[in-house]
Amino acid sequence: MDFQHSQASHCESGVMSAMLRHHGLPLSEPMTFGLSSALSFAYLPIIKINGLPLVAYRMPPKAIIKGLQKPLGLKMRFETFGSQAAGIARLNELLDQGKLVGLQTSVFWLPYLPEDLRFHFNAHNVLAFGREASGDYLLSDPVAETTVSCPAADLQRARFAKGALAPKGLLYYPLGTPQTPDWHKVLPAAIQKTTRIMLDAPLPIIGVRGIRWLARAIEKLDAGSGAAHSKMFIGQVVRMQEEIGTGGGGFRFIYASFLQEAADLLNRPALGELAEQLIDIGDEWREFALATARMIRDRDPLQPPKLAAKLRAVADREHCFFRDLRRAA
């Protein structure tokens, strides 16, 4: 298959960007991210990962794939499988037809990824574009520099991993051809949706209020006898910010890039100025990460209230930013 791989900073937006380009609609990674209103913030103390709460800087998995359907007039077909044999057979059938297929996988079972990053995270997206004579699959993992080949047994484990967000063999591909949308209609709508998520969410743990809620939780952390647990907690916040391919700054930079593109397409310089503000906010997230890492390594004394204050400052800035963005859109 004639397929062109390009490295992206986040798996789901990268997969969709490559898939749309393959089907004749060149859309940048930031554009797929922004157009599907994927930017967010959520602090979910009820959902635990290895005993630590989930912190997310974007919408839940599959939001990008599903969110692009409406603006692009695109129908995505999703298939999950009750039996592993059926899932394997279907993937092979689609690849034999020359289709490019998106897959949901668990990071832990993908042998080509660096050992230290292979945790049990079940919502990693990759593209399959062929099979070698040996039966190994040819994959385009958006966060990898080049295409990779993956033994069939490993891919099977990755596709049928159990646990939270279990993929159940999920594969997906577009039906029909994506169309260039009417930018003047879809871009303001997508931006409005993001401002609604960040400012008007009905739950106090979502959006800007979620950042403040997290600040409160960090403030209460024990710097004395419970320091080890406190360090795991704040480390988790930063891991979620950087680790799972955010392009740094918890997806703020990638969204700023989307705003720059939107400013050009709509001929609205105000969006470009807002992108500048968001880049500054992304840098502030990075400073928070740096301060946290220094405390984890005891280069600075562990002072949870100091980190909470930094988070509140970010929350204030994001509050103003999304209010201005709402007006500009």
């Binding site: 490295q7 992206a8 900073s9 990674e29 930031p30 290895n50 230290d116 990053l117 945790f119 966060v143 520099e145 360090k231 795991m232 480390g235 988790q236 930063v238 891991r239 950087e242 680790e243 391919g245 392009g247 740094g248 930079f253 990638i254 700023a256 890039s257 720059q260 992108a275 880049i279 990075r286 990460a289 740096l290 946290t292 890492a293 984890i296 390594r297």
Partner: peptide, 29 residues
Amino acid sequence: AMYARGSDGKLHIVQSAGWEVEEIVTKQA
């Protein structure tokens, strides 16, 4: 891959060999 601002003011993809902050928090886990 990370997004960063070039001299023209536009964000674009730059390859990063890694940040110590990330190394610290990954190693921690």
